Computed example of a mutant assay.
Amino acid sequence: MRMVRAAETAPTTYPWIVHADGLQVKAGTHLAVDGLDLALGTGVHALLGPNGAGKTTLMRALATVVKPVAGTLTVLGAPVHGRAELRRVRRALGYLPQQFGFYPRFTVREFVEYMAWLKEMPRSEVPAAVQRAIDRVGLTAKADTRMKTLSGGMLRRAGIAQAIVNDPELLLLDEPTVGLDPEQRLDFRELLRDLGTDGCVLVSTHLVEDVVAACTDVVLLNEGRLVHRGTTASLIAEGGSSDAGDSPAERGYSALLRRHRAEAGR
């Protein structure tokens, strides 16, 4: 593994941590993100939308897993093309996809250590960073347990641990609360608020109550297009008593989608 120069790990400031202009991204042959303009800075940002809205495809593009087909995308001050830029960006990213792979015989500690190695973290920093990540997701007692024996919720927490082990400047979490029980979700909300203090966190979720509790603002997509961008208070304000939903935030969410579809002629 090559040595990482100090200049490569020095703190850098950017006008925006994520900036997209007219972004188009395909999922297979389908245009899943269509002409998106978006700018994200420090804080916890919720990514909402119905199934098929383009949330996962957008996450994959931000994680440099797929390339845009049109428009521009800048992540951590670098355009997402070219090998040199991608290596630097990926070292500063944390990404939890909906489904993530792992070696079943790895322990939790070995799994997180392996992901730290892939992110080219300095070897001397890895043990402490791994322990801290495991502690933060509440898996301290399971650190030396094999991944294949973990419950679904514990696996999800191990996935979050690998995503935060490098203290990423940009953290992308796709449906991170799947499999977590109510108590674990409360702990996760607190972790999100902490992570959003110094970095940019984008969380894709269907659980609107988690958004209101932990996120600073909301990005709502439908069929790959931006429907709404604003604070959680602005989301709530869009709803009325006649709109579908069990909470003010859910009613705001459904009202925005209904209006957007009506304007689009759907």
Rank of each mutant, 00 (worst) to 15 (best):
E125C: 11
D135G: 01
V137A: 04
R251D: 13
S247F: 08
I160Y: 09
Q131K: 11
E183I: 14
R87V: 12
A262W: 14
S254T: 15
V80G: 06
D21C: 12
M3A: 09
G94L: 06
V75Y: 00
V219Y: 01
G265A: 02
T177V: 02
Q98W: 12
T56P: 09
E209D: 14
P122L: 02
R258C: 05
V165T: 11
M121G: 03
L220Q: 08
V25K: 07
R189V: 15
L86Q: 00
A264V: 02
D144K: 14
A163E: 14
S247K: 03
T177K: 12
G52M: 01
A255M: 03
M1R: 07
F106R: 03
E183W: 10
V69L: 06
D194I: 11
E125Q: 10
P104G: 02
L221F: 13
F106H: 08
A39E: 15
S254N: 13
D144H: 05
L195R: 01
P97G: 04
G77L: 06
S204C: 12
A214W: 04
T177W: 11
W16S: 12
T72N: 04
R91F: 09
Q162D: 13
E169T: 12
A46T: 01
V208K: 00
A116M: 14
A6C: 12
L256R: 01
R146M: 15
E190C: 13
T29P: 04
V227E: 10
D246C: 03
F111Q: 04
V25W: 13
L96N: 01
R261T: 07
P127H: 04
G252D: 02
V219K: 01
Y103P: 06
V89T: 09
G152D: 03
G35I: 07
V108T: 08
H45E: 08
A39C: 07
K142W: 12
T42A: 10
